[in-house]
Design a protein around this nucleic acid. Structure first.
Length: 291
DNA sequence: CATTTCACCTGGTGGC
DNA sequence: TGCCACCAGGTGAAAT
């Protein structure tokens, strides 16, 4: 289940491998589910465009695209200098992996995995494929001449400041766990890292967001930063033929403290980890460490 | 308007 | 061994 650290890892991998390459042609399945933009429009928009950069916004992977002939910025590898590139960017391809989405980089000859919904033939001779069995993923194409660039509604948990973080939750009565999962508030936090950061901060998932003290919220902000940063660090391992997707490598070996450890002893105090349902999702916490 | 619930999907699991 | 109910969860629409 790709959340912020996984999507960050994948986006970095795609950027490293695809930057400067061009899309010769694109095919899409007829299924309506994975497409926010009609498949035909995506195929037409992608064809002939160059990949200038790829980066993460919330849980989305954003491909910055230029029209044929526009030279990619060959100087920076880190993608931080966006102003130079942005002049050439005239379209975006936005990929959301949902629960089971994967991006695979293969040769055109290799047989397509089941549930392959999109195939992008690249000028380099490779092929980028979008595979998603459960079809919770979403694909969108934006022509920047006609619509605004993609922006997540929520704030980035890795860069949000102390004061902003406090004011985010002050006005919300819902459970803090549900608030963390709300992408309109914070972009990128999913079930795993919500549970893990609440444990790290010593806060029970059912606490009302607007009842948390200033210092508790600051503990939570720092816990989120710690957990997400560490997960990104562990997910940084590279992969040979596919762009890291489902947690089989790196981050999945992250030592979870509570997530899916129901009944197992807390790593800190040995109390059995408890499982409840909050906002319709499995929620794990230590009844002693979290108050 | 804020909050909660549910449908969308398929593969894996555990019970019988 | 096979079958089936059930669970997993990100998101957005529908309900409360």
């Amino acid at each position: 289940m790709p959340e912020l650290p996984e999507v960050e890892t994948i986006a970095r991998g795609v950027d490293k491998r695809l930057r400067g390459d061009s899309i010769v042609q694109a095919w899409f399945t007829r299924l309506p589910q994975p497409f926010k933009t009609p498949a035909a429009r995506q195929a037409k928009g992608l064809a002939g465009r160059t990949v200038l950069a790829v980066h993460r916004v919330g849980k989305h992977i954003v491909f910055e695209l230029g029209s044929a002939g526009s030279a990619p910025d060959a100087r920076g590898v880190d993608g931080t200098r966006r102003t130079q590139e942005s002049t050439a960017v005239d379209a975006q391809w936005i990929v959301h992996l949902g629960m089971t989405g994967r991006l695979l980089l293969t040769t055109p000859e290799s047989t397509a995995a089941p549930h392959t919904h999109a195939r992008l033939a690249l000028a380099s001779g490779r092929e980028l494929r979008f595979v998603d069995p459960r079809r919770f993923g979403r694909l969108e194409f934006r022509d920047l001449a006609r619509s605004a660039g993609f922006g997540a509604p929520g704030q980035e948990p890795l860069t949000i400041g102390k004061h902003e973080f406090v004011s985010l939750f002050r006005t919300h009565r819902l459970c803090i766990k549900a608030a963390l999962l709300n992408q309109a508030l914070l972009a990128g936090v999913g079930n795993i890292y919500a549970d893990e950061s609440l444990f790290q901060a010593g806060i029970r998932p059912r606490r009302r967001a607007n009842r948390l003290t200033r210092s508790e919220l600051e503990r939570l902000r720092l816990a989120l930063w710690q957990v997400l940063s560490e997960a990104i660090r562990l997910g940084g391992s590279s992969v040979s033929d596919y762009v890291d997707a489902d947690g089989a490598r790196g981050f999945f070996q992250l030592e979870h403290c509570v997530y899916q450890r129901t009944g197992e002893p807390c790593r800190r105090c040995q109390t059995p980890i408890r499982r409840i349902v909050v906002a319709g999702r499995g929620t794990h916490y230590c009844p002693k460490c979290q108050r």
